[in-house]
Design a protein around this nucleic acid. Structure first.
Lengths: 191, 191
DNA sequence: CTCCTAAGTAGACACTGTCAAGAATGTGGA
DNA sequence: TCCACATTCTTGACAGTGTCTACTTAGGAG
């Protein structure tokens, strides 16, 4: 399927470019990734990417969508294999944190306003954000039925939990907190 | 004091460069700030900054130190004018969040590992980080003497509170949460 | 006054993102 | 079958960037 390299028509350059850039993201922060280096890795000229992405930001933005999808999938999988409302929320948060620790540059890209603006998300990003909010909101709604959590405002509690988990992910990713501190700290707050 | 502009000797170019860059930070994210633009604003040649900063990252790093100092000062001031352990911790967190909302680019710079590495902080940054940890640790230590908080692990609780506040600051700064959601969300968790 | 050093300038280089124009390739219609 | 055409990719150019080297100037110590 993949066309012989060297010819004019690559076959699936769009995906190849995203793959190359995703590779670079393992070791390099998004702002330092160069479009020309990505093209070089994909074995095409420095201008080939412009036929698949409007500009550099568009490529990074596409990577952000991929990252957000992976983050969402990690949370959904974690929730599915947990029993009980409290345990499910815990699993969701830990999955979020572990994804950030495992793919720090990708996680940072997803929340970088220069490429993935929260105010005006791309057409592919918006539904992912919505699904994530639904996922968290649903679990919190189940949580507030539990003894000890009854009557809490779902919106406020969701915002607080998201903040805690997001902040912890950020601080661990930056090296301000060790990954092992995540579970005890979470439990210190939520009990 | 300030030397006549146009001559070879500026007088205090180091500070002038930081001021110009800080101005740019009000509207532009750190990775997009160009050293040559900063020099232009300071009215000097594109190479003058190299006599005061080793490279571009060093200038941004110095701005990060300024930002961290301001963030710390905001917290200290808020704590000083609050009564009671719970209220003091609350004030500290809100000051942190409000600083991030008021100076988003500067706040982001302080936590940008490309310029302000958490693992190996600069000589000026390290004591500020230590002072901030002492500030939070001290307030939490006082908090766990209060009824309803007795016996909690200070380290774990500090980490959790920092995470919550930092995450909320981040999400508000990015536009994922409105600033007005901060207080209710904080209170939903801490009661 | 002289000379040294710190603080500025000018010029060059490699690299970047992006625009314009041209060449190769595959495709639908006669 | 053959030929216009749109797509994909290439080459070349331009302005802007960070940083290196070399030169010029100002101010202060002796």
């Amino acid at each position: 399927m993949s066309r012989s390299v060297g010819g004019y028509h690559h076959g699936n350059l769009q995906a190849a470019l995203e793959d190359a850039a995703l590779d670079l993201l393992e070791t390099t922060s998004a702002p330092k990734i160069s479009l020309r280096e990505v093209a070089r890795r994909a074995g095409v000229s420095h201008n080939a990417p412009y036929h698949h992405f409007g500009d550099r930001a568009a490529l990074l933005s596409a990577l952000g969508v991929r990252g957000m999808a992976a983050l969402l999938a990690a949370q959904e999988e974690a929730v599915a294999s947990a029993a009980g409302p409290v345990e499910r929320v815990r699993a969701l948060g830990l999955a979020y944190i572990r994804y950030a620790a495992a793919h720090p540059q990708t996680f940072a890209l997803v929340f970088d306003p220069d490429y993935c603006a929260a105010g005006s998300p791309s057409a592919e990003m918006a539904p992912l954000i919505a699904r994530n909010e639904d996922l968290l909101g649903g679990e919190v709604a189940a949580l507030v039925q539990e003894p000890g959590w009854e009557g809490r405002d779902v919106m406020a509690l969701s915002a607080a939990l998201w903040s805690t988990v997001h902040g912890m992910a950020q601080l661990i990713m930056l090296g301000h907190l060790p990954l092992e501190a995540a579970e005890p700290a979470l439990d210190a707050l939520v009990r």
